[in-house]
C-alpha cells in the first residue's frame, strides 16, 4: 500500500541531487533561524537541569535553615557563596528550589501537551471524518469551551477537582484541547479532498487506516507547532494557577507557587520574587523561540519563497 508519508527517499540516484533526509532537511531550515537555535539550546539546558536536579542542587529544596532567612544573593552585601541566589523567608536555598522547580515545569508541559494533543487529535480526526451532524456537535462543544477565558475555566475546574498540581494539569489540558481539535479538523478537511486519499480509499483502505496511516501523518506539521506553543502556555497557566493558590501546593518548589509564597516580601527581598519569575520567563521564551523556528521550518509556504 502506498504509504505516502515515508516515501520521500525511495529513489536515491545521485548523492548530490537526492533530497536530504526528512530530519536533515528540517534541521537545515530550523538552523536558519538563529533565535530558534538559541531557544533550542536553552531548552536543552533546562531539560538537563530538570533531569539531574537532585545532583545539581546544593541543598534539599525543602530543608529550612532558621539561622539564614532572607539572605540576599552573593553579590549584595550580606550575601554569601553558600547561598548563591539567597534564601527565602523560611531559609530555604533559592537556587536549589529553582533547580527542582524546573522538574515541575517540564513535567507540567509534557503531561499537558500529551493529554491535550491526544484528546484533541483524536476528536479532530473524528470530527473531520464524521458525518456533518456529528462534526457540528463536536465543533459547537469546542466553541463553548473556547468562549470561556482559559484561565477562568481552568480556575473553576480546579475549584471543582480540588487544588493540586495534577488537577491543575488536567484543567489546563482540557482548556488547551479545543485548539488541537480545530487544527486537526481543518488539516483533515484539506487532505481529504486530495488524490492520494481517494486512491487509498479506492485501494480498499479501511477507515482506521485511512485516519491514522494515510491522513494523520500529513496533518502533523501545524500540530507540532501547536504542541510547542501549548507547552509554553501550559507552563505559564499552571504557574498562574499556582500563583493563585490553585495549582501545586506549598512547599512544592513550583515556580508559580514560589511566587505566591514570596508575594508579601516583594518590597523587602526582591530576589525571592525576581528569580522564580525570571526562570518562568526564560523557559517560556526559549520554547516560544523554538516554536517560531519550527513553524518556519515546517511551513511549506515559506519554504518555497
Amino acid at each position: 500500500m502506498a504509504d505516502v508519508s515515508s516515501s520521500t527517499n525511495t529513489t536515491p540516484t545521485d548523492a548530490a541531487t537526492a533530497r536530504p533526509g526528512r530530519f536533515k532537511e528540517f534541521w537545515r531550515y530550523f538552523k536558519e533561524n538563529r533565535g530558534a537555535v538559541i531557544g533550542f539550546y536553552v531548552f536543552v539546558f533546562f531539560l538537563i537541569v530538570a533531569i539531574f536536579a537532585p545532583l545539581l542542587a546544593p541543598f534539599d529544596p525543602s530543608s529550612q535553615n532558621r539561622a539564614a532567612t532572607l539572605v540576599p544573593p552573593f553579590w549584595q552585601s550580606g550575601g554569601n557563596w553558600t547561598y548563591p541566589l539567597g534564601t527565602d523567608p523560611l531559609g530555604r536555598d533559592m537556587l536549589s528550589r529553582l533547580i527542582h522547580g524546573a522538574r515541575y515545569s517540564f513535567l507540567v508541559g509534557t503531561v499537558v501537551v500529551i493529554l491535550a494533543a491526544t484528546g484533541g487529535i483524536l476528536t479532530g480526526l473524528v470530527a473531520g471524518f464524521a458525518p456533518k451532524w456529528l462534526d457540528t456537535i463536536i465543533m459547537r462543544i469546542m466553541d463553548i469551551i473556547l468562549s470561556i477565558p482559559s484561565l477562568l475555566l481552568a480556575l473553576v475546574l480546579v475549584a471543582i477537582l480540588g487544588p493540586s498540581l495534577l488537577n491543575a494539569m488536567i484543567a489546563i489540558a482540557i482548556v488547551l484541547q479545543p485548539h488541537y481539535v480545530r487544527l486537526t479538523r481543518a488539516a483533515v478537511m484539506t487532505e481529504l479532498s486530495k488524490d492520494y486519499v481517494v486512491s487509498a480509499k479506492v485501494a480498499g483502505a479501511r477507515l482506521p487506516r485511512l485516519m491514522f496511516v494515510t491522513v494523520l501523518p500529513n496533518c502533523l506539521a501545524p500540530i507540532i507547532v501547536q504542541a510547542a506553543l501549548s507547552f509554553s502556555n501550559a507552563i505559564l497557566d499552571v504557574a498562574a494557577l499556582g500563583f493563585l493558590g490553585m495549582g501545586a501546593q506549598p512547599p512544592t518548589p513550583e515556580w508559580g507557587t514560589m511566587l505566591a509564597e514570596a508575594r508579601e516580601f516583594i518590597l523587602r527581598a526582591w530576589w525571592v520574587v525576581t528569580f522564580p519569575g525570571l526562570a518562568i520567563l526564560v523557559t517560556v521564551l526559549a520554547i516560544n523561540l523554538m516554536g517560531d523556528g519550527l513553524r518556519d521550518a515546517l511551513d511549506p509556504k515559506l519554504k518555497r519563497s
Partner: peptide
C-alpha cells in the same frame, strides 16, 4: 512569553 503576574510584581517593586 511574559508571566504577567510576575511582571506586575516586578513593576510594583
Amino acid at each position: 512569553s511574559m508571566p504577567i503576574f510576575w511582571w506586575a510584581l516586578l513593576l510594583i517593586i
